[in-house]
Amino acid sequence: MLEAVISKKLRDFTLDLTLSVEPGKILVLMGGNGSGKSTTLNIIAGLLDPDTGYVRLSGSTLCEPAKEICIPIERRRIGYVFQNAAVFPHLTVHENIAYGLRAQGLPRQEIAERVSQMVGLMHLDELAGVRASNLSGGQKQRVALGRAIAIQPSLLMMDEPFSSLDIESTAAVKELIREVVTMMDIPCILVTHRVADSREIGNNAIVLCSGKKEWEGDSGFIPDTCSVCHCPSGSP
C-alpha cells in the first residue's frame, strides 16, 4: 500500500496532495500541463524532497522531512518509467533489463533467469540482443516496463507511457501494465493526458489543478474538464 501526504512549494503554486493506492490497483493522475503530476511522481521516487508530509510504502516510511527520514532513491525499490521511456540507448534490450539487477549485485544465474522471464513476459524474445537505440516507441516502452519490474519493485510509476505510441502499441502496453500490476500485486500510479486511457486502465483517478486535488474517484467517471479553471483534465 502506498500512502503519501505531500506539500511542496513550487514556482507558481504549492503542491498539496494526499493519495493512497492499494496493491494491485492503478491510480491515474490527470491534469493540465504543469499541474504537478510529474512532480508528485518525482517526490515519491525521491528525486525531489517534499517540504512537509510523508511517503509510506508497504508500511515503511520512505520520506518524512519532520523526522528527517529520507531513504535514498536507489534503496526505495520503485519501478519508475519516464515519459520518454529513458531506455539506455548504448545497451541492448537484455542489458537494459539486467541493469537494475546488476546494480543490486544479484548472482549472475539469477540475473539471467529474471531477464529471460521479463523478455518473455514483455514479448521481446527476438529483440533481446538488439541495441535499444534501434527500437520503436512501443518496443522501448515494453523494455522500460520490463526493466522497471525486473527489480521486483514495491511500487510501479509510469509518466505518460502512451504519449508517443500508436493505437496498437498503446493497447498492447495497457494490457501489459494491467497484467503486471495484477500479477505482482503492487500499487501503480500512472500519469496520462488521455481521458479515454484513464477510464480504461485506471481503478481510481485524481485530477490535479495547480497542485490541488480537483477531483478524485472511480476512474470511469473522470470529468472532461476541471471545474475550477475549466482546463481540460486531459485530451479525449
Binding site: A45, G46, L47, I73, E74, R75, R76, R77, I78, G79, Y80, F82, Q83, N84, A86, F88, P89, H90, Y99, G100, A103, Q104, A144, R147, A148, I151
Partner: peptide, 26 residues
C-alpha cells in the same frame, strides 16, 4: 538528458555507478 540518470538511480545504481555506466558512455 537526466532521465537516464534518474532511471538508473531508481533501478538501484549508486551515483558513481550511474556516472560510470550511463553518463560517461553516453
Amino acid at each position: 538528458d537526466q532521465n537516464y540518470e534518474y532511471t538508473a538511480r531508481t533501478l538501484g545504481a549508486s551515483p558513481v555507478r550511474t556516472f560510470l555506466t550511463i553518463t560517461l558512455p553516453l
